[in-house]
């Protein structure tokens, strides 16, 4: 198991970038690039990550980046992969996209590239809304959450993109969190050594978007896993294994109360008892299913 004590010291996210204080994106990207190294080409669609890089002619990302139109990430990565192959290079194309650009707007290009078994890594950092344009709902926004387009709370449940991706039968699918960076590092390393399409989704709480104090980004990410609201797993050739803290939950450790997590975030402030009950039931249901299907060895 990787430990933060052994992470490479190289930094590929440079100081003085444009992210808000406490941003989850640069936490995730720092560790991801420590695992992948700098022989990558990032493909970044319209998103906070496009802005975080800073302004032309400067960039704060010390690896090559192709900034591309919103819907086009996985198609662009397919082209980059083909070009690199033709040049005989080992460089890995890595899409770095938000949930808006993955769950909603980029899903057609993503599905196509997965089905064509393109040789690339797709990373979705999931901050559960469109943050760059001022907090609009996405397909990843959870039930009840306030956004500027769901100002009485979202009425629908989120979908599970990692499960949709798994239906493409690709070599590697993993979920991760900015709170569990040793787990994220390990998964990035595994993905790096494989071929074909690989998908990693990173849970990424956003202070201005979720309405919490910027010092709590990691704490909220951790609590999401400990309450069972976000789940850490990986699927190698379709075989699902829970990892890190989620594995302990699967083995019977008690989940922390979801109220603790909801209470820390302004986006859930208006929830009624009824709403909280509904959220709780959905998590219980989900874990009952996990216990039945995956808790055997």
């Amino acid at each position: 198991m990787a430990s933060i004590k052994n992470f490479p010291k190289e930094e590929y996210v440079l100081k003085g970038h444009a992210a808000c204080p406490g941003c989850p994106i640069t936490i995730a990207l720092r560790t991801a690039l420590k695992a992948l190294g700098n022989d990558v080409t990032l493909i970044v669609p319209a998103s906070c990550s496009a802005v975080v890089q800073s302004l032309v002619p400067k960039t704060s990302f010390n690896v090559p980046v192709l900034n591309i139109a919103f819907a086009a990430s996985a198609s662009a990565a397919s082209g980059v992969a083909a070009a690199l192959k033709r040049l005989g290079k080992k460089t890995i194309p890595v899409v770095w996209a938000g949930d808006g650009g993955s769950y909603d707007i980029g899903i057609q290009a993503l599905s196509g590239a997965l089905e064509r078994r393109e040789d690339f890594i797709y990373v979705c950092y999931n901050n559960q809304m469109y943050s760059n344009t001022g907090i609009q709902r996405s397909g990843a926004t959870p039930y009840g959450a306030w956004t500027t387009t769901t100002w009485t709370g979202k009425k629908e449940m989120q979908k599970e993109l990692a499960e949709i991706v798994m239906a493409h039968h690709i070599p590697y699918v993993a979920t991760a969190s900015i709170a569990y960076l040793d787990d994220l590092y390990e998964k990035m390393k595994k993905a790096k050594e494989m071929e074909g399409p690989r998908y990693i989704e990173i849970f990424s709480p956003c202070p201005p978007g979720w309405r919490f104090d910027m010092s709590k980004t990691v704490e909220i990410a951790r609590l999401a896993v400990q309450t069972g609201s976000w789940v850490l797993y990986e699927a190698i050739n379709g075989k699902i294994e829970f990892t890190s803290y989620s594995k302990m939950l699967l083995k019977g450790r008690e989940r922390k109360p979801i109220e603790d997590w909801l209470r820390m975030q302004g986006r859930f402030r208006h929830l009624t008892e009824e709403d909280i009950k509904r959220i709780k039931e959905a998590i219980d249901e989900k874990w009952k299913y996990y216990m039945q299907i995956y808790n055997k060895d």
Partner: peptide, 18 residues
């Protein structure tokens, strides 16, 4: 095509935001 180059302090001294 606009090209940017890796630079520390892309947005200047962000310590002033503190």
């Amino acid at each position: 095509t606009a090209i940017s180059y890796p630079t520390e302090g892309g947005m200047g001294k962000t310590g002033t935001w503190r």
